[in-house]
């Protein structure tokens, strides 16, 4: 039995064909919150049974990408490859390596390099009731009324083991409950597991650049516009596709959206201050 799910993000459509119940269950888990798109796909992936019991096979255009891992690792491979290919082709706005959450339609965008702590801070904000947009890619664009909006690449949060204790959830004992999934280096966790939900877009209210700093007291520092622009440029993943490498759009965002640096040891201590920005 084959199923197909086609979703859209940042102007790119992604189709995933699933063969078998395990593959289809994974696709539904990964893309439940992403917008349905037309059936003509820019990127096409296929998932089917793997060579060993409990494994799946991920292919793209017939080329095998992974044929030996379980659903969680296959899901991580698929979303990672899709995100990279989206970044390579997106030209309709600024695409940031970033997490994002929203409160009553107002988004806090959390750009940061891998390991900066954006997913952990994002998870704590979701746990406080903020809506989840993404922990990986945020598409920034401007509406006709000049307000900046963010669209999230709304895969489940990829939470690493180090974040579990502070979240105070026991993922290990209920990984099969439907809202979480074991990956090779942690868990995919849907926002429902943290008692919240997902939204696809929101109006950008603030940028917060997370920086984990062991043994430093939690502090939120307002960035100057030039500091914000530099930090945004550092997290821009589609600069090569944009006129002047996106500089005009970046400076427009830096001039109009307040930006902060969040320095903390424990994301749990920083989350209330970030929440207050949009409350």
């Amino acid at each position: 039995m084959k199923h197909r799910r086609v979703v859209g993000f940042a102007g790119t459509t992604i189709a995933v064909d699933a063969e078998g119940p395990a593959a289809w269950s994974l696709v539904q888990f990964l893309f439940r919150d992403m917008a349905e798109a037309a059936s003509v796909a820019d990127l096409s992936f296929e998932i089917g049974p793997g060579s060993a019991a409990g494994t799946l096979r991920l292919t793209q255009g017939g080329q095998i990408l992974n044929a030996q891992d379980g659903p969680g690792a296959i899901g991580a491979h698929l979303t990672s490859d899709a995100a990279r290919q989206i970044a390579e082709r997106t030209s309709g706005g600024l695409l940031l390596h970033s997490a994002a959450v929203a409160w009553n339609g107002r988004a806090v965008v959390l750009p940061g390099a891998s390991g900066a702590g954006k997913t952990t801070l994002c998870a704590h904000l979701v746990q406080r009731g903020l809506s989840y947009l993404t922990d990986e890619l945020a598409m920034m664009s401007f509406r006709e009324d000049a307000a900046a909006t963010v669209e999230g690449f709304c895969r489940p949060m990829a939470i690493k083991p180090g974040a579990w204790p502070s979240l105070e959830i026991d993922l290990a004992t209920d990984a099969d409950a439907g809202d979480s999934l074991v990956t090779s280096d942690g868990y995919f966790v849907r926002p429902e597991r943290l008692n919240s939900s997902a939204v696809r877009t929101a109006t950008v209210h603030a940028f917060v650049f997370p920086r984990r700093a062991p043994r430093e007291a939690a502090a939120l520092r307002r960035l100057t516009k030039a500091e914000a622009a530099l930090a945004l440029l550092a997290n821009l993943v589609n600069a090569r596709n944009l006129p002047e490498h996106g500089l005009a759009l970046v400076t427009r965002l830096a001039k109009t959206i307040p930006a902060f640096e969040a320095v903390y040891t424990d994301a749990r201590e920083m989350a209330p201050a970030v929440h207050d920005i949009v409350r």
């Binding site: 516009k225 030039a226 622009a229 530099l230 440029l233 002047e244 490498h245 500089l247 400076t251 830096a254």
Partner: peptide, 23 residues
């Protein structure tokens, strides 16, 4: 390219994809 932002400046070199923050 010079991008004035209040009394600070961002220097950006498109060919080098290099940005420098200037207080």
């Amino acid at each position: 390219n010079l991008e004035p932002l209040d009394d600070e400046l961002l220097l950006y070199h498109p060919a080098r994809t290099q940005a420098i923050y200037m207080n």
